[in-house]
């Protein structure tokens, strides 16, 4: 099959340009493309629009790209764990578009599935609904929402093969599968890269057709935001 493997994160992201729209998988710090974020820091591209459920924390995840002022706009559902984010937002240096989480997820899914728009009840009668078309189905109001696509999608998987097939682990799956489908170029970083034929086709979460580049990730920190135990 087609070999999608690139050497490392630096090689994978090197075609990202200033002002590109990029999607980054993850929920909080769980399942984020750590290696790609570090490589974008080094690449130094700026003016990015980042589509991601959250914006990381001050010193990890997308928070690192905020520190270096590489992000012009965030499209997210929840962004509250980040002092530098707050400073840039209040200073007018960063644009933020907040969307209901399910609307964000479905807009990305729609982008990858060729559905230009859909109706959802989330946000009817709220600030989110301002300026959006409302239509009534079976007596209930719904908002018209449009698809989202990206120049690059950066996703993180547990296992992947050389053909780009991906398997996620636990709740690190979150936004990664939809984002993989909605990127013009999708880059997958994986904890374990294996030869094609090594993964059971019955267990694949993201088929390789959506993935243009894949690489073996290194040095995963997997930082925990809310370390909580029973004892």
């Amino acid at each position: 099959m087609i070999n999608k493997v690139v050497e490392n994160a630096e090689v994978a992201v090197r075609n990202i340009k200033d002002y590109n729209v990029i999607m980054l998988g993850g929920f909080g710090l769980c399942g984020i493309p750590e290696n790609c974020i570090t490589a974008i820091l080094k690449l130094g591209v700026k003016g990015l629009t980042c589509i991601s459920n959250n914006a990381g924390v001050d010193d990890f995840g997308i928070g690192l790209l905020l520190q270096t002022r590489q992000v012009d706009k965030m499209i997210s559902s929840y962004v509250g764990e980040n002092a530098e984010f707050e400073r840039q937002l209040l200073a007018g240096e960063l644009q933020v578009e907040l969307l209901p989480q399910g609307t964000l997820a479905e807009r990305i899914r729609a982008g990858g599935a060729g559905i230009p728009a859909f109706f959802t009840p989330a946000g009817v009668g709220t600030e989110v609904g301002q300026g959006k078309e409302v239509r009534t189905f079976n007596g209930k109001d719904y908002l018209l929402e449009f698809w989202l696509k990206a120049d690059f999608s950066l996703v993180k998987a547990w296992k992947g093969d050389t053909a780009g097939n991906l398997i996620f682990k636990g709740t690190a799956r979150n936004f990664n599968p939809m984002m993989a489908t909605a990127g013009n170029i999708t880059i997958a970083e994986v904890e374990e890269l294996v030869p094609e034929g090594s993964l059971d086709p019955n267990q694949i979460h993201t088929p390789g057709i959506y993935v243009q580049k894949i690489f073996q990730g290194t040095n995963y920190e997997k930082r925990i935001e809310q370390y909580t135990t029973s004892s």
């Binding site: 559902s77 929840y78 209901p100 989480q101 399910g102 609307t103 959802t120 009840p121 989330a122 989110v128």
Partner: peptide, 15 residues
């Protein structure tokens, strides 16, 4: 005050 975002709340209450 700082706006953190609605997360999944709007989807949950709407449905």
């Amino acid at each position: 005050k700082m706006v953190k975002g609605m997360g999944g709340a709007m989807d949950l209450v709407a449905s």
